[in-house]
Each structure stands twice: as structure tokens, then as C-alpha cells.
Design a protein around this nucleic acid. Structure first.
Lengths: 227, 227
DNA sequence: AGTCGTCAAATTGTTGACACAATGGACGAG
DNA sequence: CTCGTCCATTGTGTCAACAATTTGACGACT
């Protein structure tokens, strides 16, 4: 009989999760210096595992560090944030194209359910926070996962997803945006159901580009202009 | 007066470079177990910095590791290798589109020179190893670098480039392929010079897709079918 | 007053030792 | 002969101490 194994086997993984949560949830602010002795004490571990966690979060682009001067929480410039959207347009366009071919009927049905669920929440909250959906509740996340391409899915859902999470909600969504986004999601799903990969890709790219334009308009002095 | 500073400030970085070279150049074979005491002795360092180097190479997908069971050199299945090409199609298509807008005239001129150089080498070596160009000599690498999008360029030229290097040359290029590739490169550059981002993206994607198809045809029993 | 050099404190880089888990082979039961 | 168990060995996870570098403050000099 198997023991119920802990969620994280090693202290390094626990530190990874804790540190990532602290960064994404804002307990550690963008640009903040990460002092190893302080953090190690905070998580009740030694510096060894902590340093490994820092290296892994560097891979997820949540931390930047230089030799001898230590690590800091990432702080994207406006330019860098827009770059992130160009990357998403390219990668999510491709996952969408692939999903049109590779998604199972069951997965597409589940996506329909998800969007219905989003619609309820949209009307309930008066169209306020449609974008707050995370992980499995995130339409984009789910599409990547059923693209059939593990590499793309991992890059989007593991490597860069948390950076997106960190910045996605720093900007107030303009009034009509959530409803508009839901509409675009439905059109994308329509294309997926019709198994039209080319159209699905075009629609997803347009969708992300319009989110990018929306963001661009809102970028004022909220962001540091230089990294 | 500044000391001539060493290329790598820390042992961890030296280990990163050494280990990466050993993996890409085949001194460490795909799938091979990486024993920390052995490697630490090999590079003349202790396990601490070595473990950090391993974590960083995990980010570059050259190493995979699981808790308590250690690390191994990555060994891509045929499926995973094809997935890599889908990722490239998406990302390089985008860098190409952006480069059409953002590349300077000087950069485009340098790319022309590069392709001329490739042509000489192609005729000199009887069309054998056009694809062996690496780093700054790699057409794709250079385009990413002049896309103006640092994030995309880093993902392609740092994060995933070495994985591509590792696998690019495991397959014999079919007879006419190098000449064909050079021809496609020239058409892409034409589009860049005309500042036609849409066409440049289309051509780059077609180019990578045909490389993918070429690869697919050659995949026999050389690759493990399961990871 | 401002700039530069020096020194002390804090922080990062590295090491070797210890604790724990996994691997592999010998041994014995079936 | 096959399978499972036990134990020794090997390797990974973690820690605390040491070494080297950076940072900031203080004071001397222009």
C-alpha cells in the first residue's frame, strides 16, 4: 500500500512554490532584492535549496540575477510586457492551430462548458473580472494543454505562465473588454469545433493582438519605462 | 586599471558552459545518467555549483531530472523533436515578421553578406554541410537577434538553441536540401528587404515546415520512439 | 562642498560533512 | 528456476561554516 506522498518531495521544490507564490501574489514586489539569508529564514530552510529554487524561477523569468550581486524580482518595462504578448501571439496561435486537429471531442465539450461558466460569472460580477481565471479555468491555458504538443504546452503553461499571471492583472480592464474577450473566445471555439486550424490560429492571434493593443493604450506611468 | 576579468565569474557558470558543451558535443550521450560526484570531480568543483549548473541546463531543456533519482541528459523522442519544429515555426515566423519592421539596413546588408558566405561554402564543400553554421553564423539566429524583441530572441538563441544544436546534425541532410535551404533563405531575406513582414513570416514558416517534413521522412530507428 | 580611498559590515560563492533515499546484488523461500 | 526480501553501496538532499566579493559609511584630501 502506497504512502500518501507529500505534494513536494524536496525542500527545494517547496521553496520554489513558496517563492513563486510570494512573487506572483505581490508579497515580494517587482524589482525587490532577494537576500538569501532572509528568505532562507522565512521559509525555514538553508541557502542551498533556496538557491536552487532561485535558479528555477530564473528559468520562468520571474527572477533575474547577476553574479555576486544577487537576485531581484523581475520588473518588466512596458516594452518587455508588450514583447510578452508578441510571444503569446506566436505560440498560442500555433497551439490553437494544433488543437483544432488534436483536441478530442470531449475536450472541446469541456471548453464549451468552461465558456458557459465564464459567461455566468461575467453576468454575476457585472463584467468585472473575467480575466481573473487561472490555471485550468483559463481558456488559453486549456487550449495549450489540448494542442497535443507537450513542449508548447509546457512553455506556455509552466515556463512563462506565471510571469503572465504576475502582470495580467496590474491593469484595469477597460469597460467592455471582458464581454468582448468572451465573444472572441466563443468564435475561437467555434473554429476548433469545425476543426478549422487555420481559422482558429487567425482568430487566436487577432484576439491576443487586440488584448495587446488594449494593454498598450493603458500603459501610462504604471510601468517603469526602463528595466 | 581594470583587471582582465575571466569569461565566467563563478564556478557555477563555468560548470554550465562545460556541461553544456559536453552534452551538445556528445561527450555525454543522450539519456546518460549524470552522477554529481563524478561530474564535480571532472570539472574540479564541488557539488553545490554543479547542482546550480544542472538546474540552469534544465531550463534549457538539455537535462531532465526528478527528485531523488537524479539527472539525465535529455533524449528526445521523434515526437518531441517534431514538436520542437512546430515551436520554431511559431516563434521564428514571428521574429521574421518583426525583423521586417525592426531590422536596420545595416543588419540586412550583413545578412546578405552572410548568405553570400554560405553560398561559397556550399559550392566549396559540394553542398555537404550548409547546416553546420552555428551561433552568429546561423541565419535563423541572426534574424531572431534583429527582430527587436529581446524576449523572443532569448528564447530562441539562449533557452532552446542548444537543444536544437544537439539534434540538428543527428540526421543526414538529403542530397538537394542545403541548396534548397539557401534558396529559401534568400527569398526570406528578399521579403525582409522589401519590409514585407507578412510575406517574411509566411516564407519562414514554410521554410521551417519543409525542414520538418524533411526530418520526418528521415526519422527511422535512429530515435527512441518513447522518451 | 565634493571626490576619492579605506575600512567594516553584509551578502554571495563555495566547500565538505552528514542524513536520507534509491539502486543493485546476495540470499533464501516457494 | 523465479520471485521477493534484506542489506550494503551508491547517490541525492540538506546543512553549517568558510572564503571572496560587494556595499555603504566614514574620513582625508583637493
Amino acid at each position: 500500500m502506497a504512502h500518501t506522498r507529500p505534494l513536494t518531495a524536496t525542500l527545494s521544490e517547496q521553496a520554489l512554490e513558496a517563492l513563486q507564490a510570494d512573487i506572483v501574489e505581490g508579497a515580494l514586489q517587482p524589482g525587490e532584492k532577494l537576500r538569501e539569508p532572509e528568505l532562507a529564514a522565512r521559509y525555514g530552510i538553508s541557502r542551498g535549496p533556496l538557491r536552487e529554487a532561485i535558479r528555477r524561477l530564473e528559468a520562468r523569468k520571474l527572477i533575474i540575477s547577476a553574479p555576486n550581486t544577487g537576485a531581484r524580482v523581475v520588473s518588466l518595462s512596458a516594452t518587455q510586457l508588450l514583447e510578452l504578448y508578441d510571444m503569446r501571439e506566436a505560440l498560442e496561435g500555433m497551439t490553437c492551430r494544433l488543437a483544432a486537429v488534436n483536441a478530442s471531442d470531449a475536450e472541446l465539450a469541456a471548453l464549451t462548458t468552461l465558456l458557459d461558466q465564464h459567461e455566468s460569472e461575467l453576468t454575476e460580477t457585472d463584467g468585472r473580472n473575467y480575466f481573473r481565471q487561472e490555471g485550468d479555468l483559463d481558456f488559453h491555458f486549456r487550449i495549450a494543454r489540448c494542442s497535443g504538443n507537450e513542449l508548447l504546452a509546457d512553455i506556455l503553461c509552466v515556463d512563462h505562465y506565471h510571469l503572465l499571471r504576475l502582470y495580467r492583472y496590474k491593469f484595469s480592464t477597460s469597460p467592455g473588454r471582458p464581454a468582448r474577450a468572451l465573444f472572441e473566445h466563443r468564435r475561437i471555439l467555434d473554429a476548433l469545433r469545425e476543426r478549422d486550424g487555420e481559422l482558429a490560429e487567425i482568430l487566436m492571434r487577432k484576439h491576443i493582438r487586440s488584448a495587446r493593443e488594449n494593454l498598450k493604450r493603458q500603459i501610462g506611468q504604471q510601468l517603469t519605462t526602463e528595466q
